[in-house]
Amino acid sequence: MIEIKNLYKSFEDKTVLKDISSQFKDGITNLIIGQSGSGKTVLMKCIVGLLDPTEGDVLYDGRNFVKMSKKEKTMLRREMGMIFQSAALFDSMSVLENVMFPLDMFSDMNYKDRKRQAENCLDRVNLLEAANKYPGEISGGMQKRVAIARAIVLNPKYLFCDEPNSGLDPKTSLVIDELIHGITHEYGITTIINTHDMNSVMGIGEHILFIYDGRKEWEGSKDEVVSSDNARLSAFIFASDLFRKVREANR
């Protein structure tokens, strides 16, 4: 479980995160949602340690990440996997080499075992046939799937996804969502997904944290989202014509 307590983050005179606290449980998909510029990405960067919070704590199964030494942080990071908005695959490496990279760095396995493990992960995301291609030769959706394979190759305890569906068509987005959801349940990982894709919210949002202007505005599950009487949440959710029509049809 990951717990954030009274998290603040300021850049010079601008406070982006204001007193955010929440718990992200194991084995479910935790979603952080909010408008562009609401502070979602900054919150995720503070959780994974790419930014240091100005105030507050981030606890990984009770271990305070903010107060850890550099060495302890490095060790904890080996338990994390992250899928970036841009996939962030290494251009100079093939798909297989990208997935093998964390194993090359941190495992004691021999080459044959590392290769087999990477191929298993590629098979899990249905991309074994693209193993020898380079990131520039595959589509955006395939790149995201490779990023998922790379993120899970070391069997992480914590999985972070920063807008995994951005730039993807609805069908591919669904595939990515189902993959992340499946992997989370299969391995019992603590997964946090940063998104503003309403299809993801309604599809895999088992725990949802809604951020508005750097503050925690609402928290609940996908079943509670639609019935919530929070005006800002409703304005965000039903900004889409489609969702508005669905709501009106339900009424």
């Binding site: 994974v48 790419l50 080996r78 970036f84 841009s86 962030a88 695959l89 964390p102 760095m105």
Partner: peptide, 18 residues
């Protein structure tokens, strides 16, 4: 610079690599 802007350096950091 390209590795930085495409988050490849962030990916290395997240993996616990200096």
């Amino acid at each position: 610079g390209t590795m930085r802007t495409t988050q490849q350096i962030d990916a290395l950091e997240i993996m616990g690599i200096n």
